[in-house]
């Protein structure tokens, strides 16, 4: 159902689904984690959670008037902003971080950007018309049913996600702009798999299941009904909780730069990856980054091996070699115990 005024279901009112909520918050704290893939059947509040995350997002300081949302003071800028910086016209402004949606069936030109044909024909000048990848820069890029995305769109996403840059070489346009985004995808695994390449680009993955506990199920329905009856009142009720979350995220972001992962934490990450037989060190990096974000939410500036073990349930599931006969659920407890033994 569509609400007229952006009456969004508050994030903090979502019942259960702790892993999903944690993954989303950690990504907001540390965007370099690389996004999250949320897998689960229909009706598990996947989309609700992502959309309601928007309200908790911090502000960004960007260069005024840039359609690509170039961050102020960043080393990566679009050609216009490089021009602005070099001519001293780089005034900054605060804008809230957004959730930019990439709908299925989007065309290549809409995603990557394209030649502004109208402009070309009427003015005889070529102009770049930014696409979704430009809008997503510095923001969250949300793809619902990401597994149903067409191959050539996935290629575009992969390129941008890998480099943080969108290169356009098409329709007579040659253009480059930064495109760093938190990629959030939701999917129903029954409808098909994700290409391994894209799967690998997600920093975290969580599998959500429909709530089984009867009491909680009732709670979900009650809250939902309450929200639909009186959205404003409902939101009011949770505003304190929302503020607390917002502050948590902000505080964590503020100390994130001071968070240090020492040798023991790095060692723990590497050990876990090797132990689970995961390919590539992208997993190691994701473990450290996520653990750093986690430590920051705990108000700590030192990452301990336990943090690494704690976040492994978010970092590892989609990276482990697929074995259809085994449940891919990771036993964090066991892992923590194992790690304890290993490190001691």
């Amino acid at each position: 159902m569509k609400q007229k005024n952006k009456a969004v279901y508050p994030f903090s009112a979502i019942v259960g689904q702790e892993n999903m909520k944690e993954a989303l918050i950690l990504n907001t704290v540390n965007p370099s984690i690389g996004g999250v893939l949320i897998r689960g059947e229909k009706g598990t509040a996947k989309s609700t959670a992502v959309r309601s995350l928007a309200e908790l997002l911090p502000d960004r300081f960007v260069i005024d008037g840039c359609p690509c949302g170039c961050a102020h003071g960043s080393l990566e800028l679009c050609p216009e902003c490089e021009e602005r910086v070099s001519t001293g016209k780089d005034g900054g402004t605060y804008v809230p971080m957004r959730v930019v949606e990439l709908p299925l069936g989007s065309t290549e030109d809409r995603v990557a950007g394209t030649l502004d044909i109208e402009h070309a024909i009427s003015e005889g000048r070529k102009k770049f018309e930014p696409g979704i990848l430009a809008m997503a820069n510095g923001n969250i890029l949300y793809v619902d049913e990401v597994n149903l995305l067409e191959d050539h769109i996935v290629d575009l996403l992969l390129d941008a996600a890998a480099m943080g840059t969108n290169f356009i070489e098409r329709e007579g346009i040659s253009y480059t702009h930064p495109s760093r985004f938190i990629l959030i995808g939701t999917m129903n695994p029954e409808e098909g798999d994700l290409r391994p390449q894209l799967l690998d680009r997600f920093g975290l993955a969580v599998d959500v299941e429909a709530e089984r506990d009867e009491g909680r199920r009732t709670e979900i329905i009650l809250r939902r009904m309450e929200f639909e009856k009186d959205p404003e009142g409902f939101r009011e009720k949770y505003s304190g909780e929302q503020d607390r979350l917002r502050k948590l995220i902000n505080d964590a972001r503020n100390i994130l730069n001071d968070v240090v992962a020492g040798a023991d934490a790095v060692k723990a990450a590497v050990r876990i990856s090797l132990h689970l037989g995961v390919d590539g060190h992208r997993a190691d990096l994701a473990l450290i980054k996520t653990a750093s974000a986690y430590a920051a939410t705990q108000g700590r500036t030192a990452v301990v091996p336990k943090d690494v073990a704690h976040v492994s349930k978010l970092v590892m599931p989609h990276r482990m070699r697929r074995n259809p006969f085994q449940d891919s659920n990771l036993d964090t407890k066991e892992l923590e115990e194992w790690l304890e033994m290993e490190i001691r």
Binding site: A120, I121, R125, D155, L158, F167, I168, R170, G172
Partner: peptide, 20 residues
């Protein structure tokens, strides 16, 4: 980049110049 079009890779008619 992957999605490059044929005309951008090989080069093409300079449309801007032609129209002007």
């Amino acid at each position: 980049p992957l999605g490059s079009s044929e005309d951008r890779v090989a080069g093409m008619l300079d449309a801007e110049h032609a129209i002007k």
